[in-house]
């Protein structure tokens, strides 16, 4: 009985704490001038520092998708440009945002949870509060804003690199020419597709940073607690990326 009641009350309590944390964080936007410098730092750590790994993942995703599509469509009845028609929308609609999301859940989400968790267990958050600073606003607002601002930029970057990777492997592997790839990509291009991708990346950026901030801010139990919070932040971010991905597809497509 006690276990089943805990199974119900714990998620509700966690959701309540998560919402309260965000309300407290964004209720302090009036003091944004205090957070500005930290925002730029976080934008660099979240965005600029993630460029190499995002480029690597997106480039390989585009290349592999191209090779696999070419493998499935080896028939004289289908023009080769169809490969471009499949690869480009796949990257713009799905892979660009989701691959970037997964990469950043591990790279950015885990870093945020570990940073805030360590600050919690070493009393650095208490020190901020004791000085009279709103620690929630100071620590969480710049990280979440940096995520929401930089994720769409990384998404756009991932799409270009992914398509570039596809074109490169198509050319080198002799599957189709650049002209055929681009012709196919343009043929079925829908203007809403990149808008949908940007909406997804904003939602993913918000989910990853807020979940990781929540996990890190409420860390307890020393080094073990920091490890647990870091793992949970990365795993939960991935789960919520998948849920949000499906929900947005159902709602917007």
């Amino acid at each position: 009985m006690a276990v089943s009641s805990l199974a119900i009350t714990t998620p509700i309590r966690n959701l309540g704490l998560y919402v309260l944390l965000l309300v407290k964080a964004f209720g302090s936007l009036g003091e944004f001038s205090l957070y500005r410098k930290n925002l730029f730092t976080q934008m660099v750590r979240t965005g600029i520092d993630s460029i190499p790994i995002v480029a690597l993942a997106a480039g390989f995703s585009g290349a592999v998708t191209t090779v696999q599509t070419a493998y499935q469509l080896v028939t004289p009845f289908i023009p080769k440009s169809i490969i471009g028609s499949i690869v480009a929308p796949s990257l713009i609609l799905e892979l660009g945002a989701v691959v970037t999301g997964f990469i950043l859940a591990g790279r950015v989400g885990a870093r945020i949870a570990a940073e805030l968790g360590t600050m919690r267990v070493t009393e650095q958050i208490d020190a901020l509060e004791a000085m009279g600073l709103n620690s929630v606003g100071y620590l969480i607002v710049p990280r979440v804003l940096a995520g929401v601002i930089m994720f769409p930029i990384l998404y756009v970057f991932a799409c270009f690199v992914g398509i570039g990777g596809g074109i490169l492997v198509a050319q080198i592997g002799g599957y189709l020419s650049i002209g055929e790839f681009v012709k196919g990509a343009r043929e079925f291009f829908q203007p809403f597709d990149p808008i949908f991708g940007i909406i997804k990346s904003v939602v993913f950026g918000f989910a990853i940073t807020t979940i990781s901030c929540y996990k890190g801010y409420f860390t307890g139990g020393g080094a073990e607690g920091v490890g647990k919070a870091t793992t949970e932040a990365a795993v939960m971010s991935c789960v919520y990326i998948l849920l949000a991905d499906l929900l947005l597809a159902v709602l917007l497509l």
């Binding site: 600050m119 208490d126 004791a130 709103n134």
Partner: peptide, 23 residues
Amino acid sequence: SYNQLREIRRQFGVLFQGGALFD
């Protein structure tokens, strides 16, 4: 209120057990 409490906290200096320096 929380903001009033923060004003009062600014009259305090606290040395935490482990120093709590920002690393």
